[in-house]
Design a protein around this nucleic acid. Structure first.
Length: 435
RNA sequence: GCGGCUGUGGCGAAGUGGUUAACGCACUGGAUUGUGGCUCCAGCACUCGAGGGUUCAAGUCCCUUCAGUCGCCCCA
């Protein structure tokens, strides 16, 4: 038997969680004025090397690369920002009259990693990017946008961690200061931190092993090396967040793994109880230099990305109700002539907007009734020769535990009437009940 | 790339190296029934992730491998 590839999975019973998430994403994105963009699942390998950073873990050991028959080097996208930026430049979206350009995407990303809770090799991200404005109010809007999505999904216990990396000037000054600070302690740091010292000294700050190390407490803070503009930007972002009542905590140890961030960075975490080790559900920040570094015009930008699988885990732990399979009506068929009639009735009801189904297995009546339970049908009808001859059928209302007879002619209007006047609505469909 | 745990029918889950691999749910057929839902009867794994090995004998021991799961690194 051929099995699915490591780190992939089939969405079957959980489809309701994804549909719920997708529905809310579309709705909230419209509220914030963001338009969907769909870009390819694979891009030139160079794109990711130049955007995410060739030295980053994602590029150095996690990409799916393949050479195609034309000898082109392709890479399955490991994240969404690079492709969106490429599309912005290639399609000259930056020149469009609506500014800033506010875009969102939803789709699969690919990273070659060991799977664990909330982590897969093919996984989905929902992300947003806003281009063209360096104003701190846009940083705050993007964070509010992410926060509102979580609100809509009713995910509790979320915590927005906020930090600034400053502009390029601030970053080099800070990195130098960090290296100078840790240099005398280097031999007492953990193995990972010793390599981090060379590759990315910022990462030493959020090391779990050296958390309690004495040198950690006295380490210089990002804020101490900010230029005055960068400092002002960070304060303004916070002022806008305060004005919008978005809760956050400033976390000076927050650094991010992608190379392109400048100024604001943030992460949304949920409790570890819910998600385990991978409790960062959303990450993002400002990247003012990326568009230019990919040969576009100088274009400041800010964005975020959600891990959809992690949202699903959180939703489940939260017992958030999601859409479940449901039918308005089910026909139980007894014989060939009734089957013919049922097909005709079914088509009419379906065109009228009712979700209907019937037996196709020639099951015994007992088995057919079982199906009505599995498929959660509100109305159940038994269609035999007698019913066909009389053009009348008895309908069982499973919800109100009621039964009544109607002619075939009145069937549709009667069912619609019942669906729209019952005291409870009939799940998520076009026939909402009046409450 | 590294470490822990796990791998028995559609699902859950027993199984001190020794006859025909428990049981529950689900499913199928039948009895009963006011057209099912309760109850009763019957059926449903030549096989224990895969491949080797030890043994008279292996689901049970050993090795290899694959997969799942959780953690490290890193990230969503």
């Amino acid at each position: 038997m051929i099995k699915r590839m490591k780190g992939t999975y089939d969405i079957t019973d959980d489809i309701g969680y994804y549909q719920t998430i997708e529905k809310h994403i579309q709705k909230i994105s419209k509220l914030f004025g963001y338009q969907e963009i769909r870009t390819p699942h694979f891009e030139s390998r160079d794109l990711f090397h130049r955007s995410v950073g060739a030295d980053s873990d994602i590029i150095s050991k996690e990409t799916y690369d393949f050479k195609d028959r034309g000898n082109r080097m392709n890479t399955l996208r490991p994240e969404g920002t690079a492709g969106v930026v490429r599309a912005l430049i290639e399609n000259k979206l930056y020149a469009q009259p609506t500014v800033p350009q506010k875009l969102y995407y939803y789709g699969s990303m690919f990273r070659y990693e060991r799977p664990q809770k909330g982590r897969f090799r093919e996984f989905r991200q929902f992300g947003a990017e806003a281009f063209g404005s360096a104003h701190p109010s846009l940083d705050a809007e993007v964070i509010a946008y992410a926060f509102t999505v979580l609100r809509a999904l009713k995910i509790k216990d979320v915590n927005v961690h906020l930090n600034t990396l400053g502009d390029g000037q601030s970053q080099t000054a800070y990195k130098d200061a960090l290296k100078a600070h840790f240099k005398p302690h280097i031999t007492t740091l953990c193995q990972d931190c010793q390599t981090r010292y060379e590759t990315n000294p910022l990462r030493i700050l959020d090391c779990k092993v050296d958390q309690g190390h004495a040198a950690m407490k006295t380490a210089p803070k990002t804020t101490e090396h900010l230029t005055s503009e960068a400092q002002k930007h960070f304060e303004d972002v916070q002022a806008y967040l305060d004005a919008m009542n978005i809760p956050y905590t400033v976390d000076h140890n927050l650094v991010r793994g992608l190379d392109y961030y400048t100024h604001t960075v943030f992460e949304v975490k949920v409790s570890e109880q819910l998600l385990g080790a991978q409790n960062a559900i959303c990450g993002g920040g400002r990247y003012n230099d990326l568009v230019a570094s990919l040969d576009g015009p100088v274009t400041p930008a800010v964005g975020f990305a959600f891990g959809v699988e992690r949202l699903v885990v959180a939703l489940k732990a939260n017992n958030t109700p999601v859409e479940a399979p449901y039918l308005h009506a089910y026909f139980i068929i007894l014989g060939a002539k009734p089957r013919l009639k049922a097909m005709a009735l079914l088509q009419r009801l379906r065109l009228g907007g009712l979700m209907c189904d019937m037996d196709y297995m020639e099951k015994a009546i007992k088995g057919q009734f079982k199906q009505t339970e599995h498929k959660q049908a509100r109305f159940v009808m038994v269609l035999g020769d007698e019913e066909v001859d009389n053009e009348t059928i008895e309908v069982k209302d499973q919800k109100l535990n009621d039964r009544f007879s109607v002619s075939f002619n009145d069937l549709y209007i009667t069912l619609v009437d019942k669906l729209t006047t019952s005291t409870t609505d009939c799940h998520d469909c076009d026939h909402k009940g009046e409450k």
